[in-house]
Design a protein around this nucleic acid. Structure first.
Lengths: 341, 341
DNA sequence: TGTAGCGTCGTAAACGTTTACGGTAACGAG
DNA sequence: CTCGTTACCGTAAACGTTTACGACGCTACA
């Protein structure tokens, strides 16, 4: 005898009553509820999730899919840890738990996602590292699984998303550099088809136009989103005949590689090449000269993701009357010395 | 009509046969198996996990618990992502999936773990960031859940673990520094009760003794495991009246803070303070002078964790005759210029 | 022809919950 | 006393699988 049956037997009441007591139904006397809760706590009873899921058709869990291949190189895991914490803080209010679903590098993300959906082990999903065209979005809408994307996509159809303000970052970065007298400003964008690169690039182009600066295709530099990519980027820049005097980055660790490359060439960030970095992170705070970059509260971002996801789920929506969230998440400029000589 | 019932109806065979066909049983003709697999693929049928779990008493999933509070500060960056990838690569061979369970900062890890165990949403668990006394180990052994710990603990009882070679790192670090002529060598250890700090410290003490060097308690410096802790550590060292000439670190991002602190004081790592770092990571490769540190293949570590965990699970043990794994994971020295002036 | 064996399949129970439904006792109002 | 109402609780079905068991048809061999 196990589980709720055991509990009921010990207390000499029916399993139905035990279940009602545990789930906070009203049609159970306060006295028996107390006895049930006590007994449950004592014997360490936790409802079997498989049983619940099967009966209720819901799992009380939310999934956060991360792509080990893409995310490793477009974020670091302090990024996700921070976001996780925020999401979880929202979910616990509703007795939901967060599970992270790491899609291995050698598996197709859509196939992986489809398997996870089919398994039905989460009630809702957060996906990240959205690509330019992301078939996962179609998959999720077709399967009618509540979800939200961390990142926009060009995939058609309306769906909820929250995305960092890549456009604003590009704009403000250019503004700062132009104000400092620069006119040949390069932009680093990822070499894969992650959507954020396109948004960033659009912002870059618009900002140049607004300042009346010409767009030189040679200054749009595609590199892998990694510190190694930054190193390579630095070398490419130094090798150019008509070298830019400034550059804006769209991935947080690129700056490391450039710093190193400049150091090896006896050059100095800020004086010999103005650099505007991307996300402030534990590393950027300890670079010298200090990197000009943009701050974002990961926890708040996670909270927003959690709340916006719940807003799309009928069972929780009344607590979050947000509708379909499509929101650009602001980033705060953190001035450093890397962009002013 | 949904799920397997629908599939069976479409094919005009019983659900039992469909199930057997899908699960690769022998008592089903090759012809019907083919038809079933085709139909399943076409309609995108994936077995409902709740149903399977309930019937089989297993979930086909392995959990990897990470402590958002502790792990953020005892590991960083791509550490977990790399390990996840290795673990998953083992699990997929057995149709198991990996789910990461992020314990929020504001929840007690043992309580969280107990809830996860009770929910029965994983068949086995990997825990990390083991503390000196870690009640999670008692919990898991008592509940008879297969598990393995990434990190040793002083908790009594035999249980499987794999741990980085903190002892060897301390020993080899000291050896190098002594060979370079240093005799006042400090050690940085974490200020919390994560077990790795104690192992590291033991290695440090043993190495000093072997070289006939005195143990100065003032040189054992406890700091938070973060880059900020490194900054603080650098300040503390510079403020000492009888300053050490070298230091070994046991957390990978400490070096960043020290570098910064030295730079602000006009000093240089390697020349003014010899530094032996901990784990080689994307950041350490781009510091200058290059940090002397230790390399570990995260993917291989993940593979070992996965295999060792499966070895403890009756259903998979025959493929991995490893017994109870208790293994110290070697780290390879990567010489830099931060410890030799 | 009888029967043993084999290959293939259908039947139905079981896993641990939740919940619709009905039933009982107590109580108050008429 | 009767009847309706309320508060509480038990019963049993249902969720979607897997699997033990038995049944059936066929072949092979005595």
């Amino acid at each position: 005898m196990k589980g709720i049956r055991r509990l009921a037997q010990d207390l000499n009441i029916s399993i139905g009553t035990v279940s009602r007591a545990l789930n906070g139904r009203s049609d159970v006397s306060e006295d028996t509820r107390r006895r049930v809760l006590e007994a449950a706590a004592e014997m360490g009873y936790v409802p079997n999730q498989a049983g619940r899921s099967l009966r209720q058709g819901s799992t009380n869990a939310i999934g956060f899919m991360i792509e080990l291949g893409a995310d490793i190189n477009s974020n670091s895991d302090t990024f996700f840890m921070g976001v996780f914490d925020g999401v979880q803080s929202v979910l616990t209010r509703h007795h939901l738990d967060l599970v992270a679903l790491p899609c291995p590098t050698d598996e197709n993300p859509s196939v992986y996602l489809q398997r996870m959906i089919g398994r039905r082990l989460v009630d809702g999903l957060i996906i990240s590292a959205t690509h330019r065209k992301d078939s996962r979005i179609d998959l999720l809408t077709k399967a009618r699984i509540p979800f939200i994307a961390l990142g926009r996509s060009m995939t058609s159809g309306d769906y909820p998303w929250i995305d960092l303000d890549f456009d604003g970052v590009a704009r403000r970065g250019i503004d700062r550099l132009v104000a400092a007298g620069h006119s040949r400003i390069a932009a680093a964008v990822p070499s894969n088809d992650i959507n954020l690169g396109f948004v960033f690039l659009d912002g870059y182009k618009a900002a140049l136009k607004r300042h009346g600066l010409p767009l030189d295709p040679a200054l749009i530099m595609r590199v892998p989103s990694s510190e190694l990519g930054g190193y390579q980027l630095g070398r490419d820049i130094l090798a150019m005949k008509d070298r830019p005097t400034a550059i804006i980055l769209n991935y947080e660790l690129l700056a490391l590689g450039i710093y190193r490359q400049l150091a090896e060439a006896g050059l100095q960030p800020g004086r010999d090449l103005a650099i505007v970095g991307f996300r402030e992170n534990p590393v950027s705070r300890f670079m010298s000269p200090r990197l000009t970059c943009f701050r974002v509260s990961l926890r708040d971002l996670g909270i927003a993701l959690g709340e916006s996801l719940l807003a799309t789920m009928p069972a929780y929506a009344e607590a979050y009357p947000l509708g379909m969230v499509q929101r650009i998440w602001p980033m705060e400029l953190v001035p450093g010395e890397s962009d002013v000589g």
